[in-house]
Amino acid sequence: MSDTILRFDGVSRDFSSQKGFFGGKRTMRAVDSLTLDVPRGKVTGVVGESGCGKSTLARLALHLLKPTAGHVCFEGNDLAGLTPAALRRQRRHMQMVFQDPYSSINPRFTIRDAVMEPFQVHGVRHTRAEAKDKAARFLEMAGLDPQLAERYPQQLSGGQKQRVGIARALALEPDLIVLDEPTASLDVSIQAQIIALLADLKTRLGLTYLFISHDLGLVRYFCDRIVVMYLGAAVEILPSTDAPHRHPYTRTLMDSAFLPDPERRKTVTAMTGEIPSAFERPPGCAFAPRCSLASSRCYAEKPVLLTTERHPVACHHPLD
């Protein structure tokens, strides 16, 4: 068994939109030639702002979206090369927890229906009593009262619904779970509960997580490795949470994350410029217009993610 459970190899994904009836197509590159290994048994964090392509990345990982270019390989198999039936079987081993707990459960399903749906889909039959036991077991694993099984999602709080989403993801005993901002729509006290649950499940079940978030503080707490994304590309891959960052964008993210400590207030430096549109990518570094260290080279030549002496960073003028 290889140490890499999931591998992105030069993966790009375009979205096109028709511009009016007669207008031409506009193409937006949401993820841009991304190469990334997700190591088994670790938590790989992907952090970035809205529009950086992190949600597209999550969907590419599970082949919910097909890559426009490149390959996504799970356990060494290119997902694009699988037949639909083989892909459906493969999905037993890779699951996802979604950002919005409010719409991730069919409102016509009871909680038990939702948790048991994966078995139904994969043709695993249960008697009524077995289904009841099994649903109760997974709900308990996710820290929920099994008596909630009879309820409908509208009767649950956001945190409870997210736990149902986790129970459903666990049902088929997957190896990899992609967590797409699983706590972004929850209160902080519930967010911490969910993170604690996920950490506990990981150790108990030997899971691998791909954790997508906009919250650098949370990623630094929860993840073993951190991938920083900007406008569809990985700009830095930090091998550990305490590795010193080298990309100016990572520094901006760090400076923008407020700590719950009034003695350590951040000095926020005014940043000019906006995130460029993914429809009209600049030729050089996408961060250059907002970067204080940008040189003329940064506007002309696109930096590639190079493994330097320390760790991969895509910058012409990395920090030391």
Partner: peptide, 17 residues
Amino acid sequence: RETYVEAAISIGSGHVH
């Protein structure tokens, strides 16, 4: 576009399901 549809596909559901 509902997430539960995406969730169903992600657990391996076919079109008919």
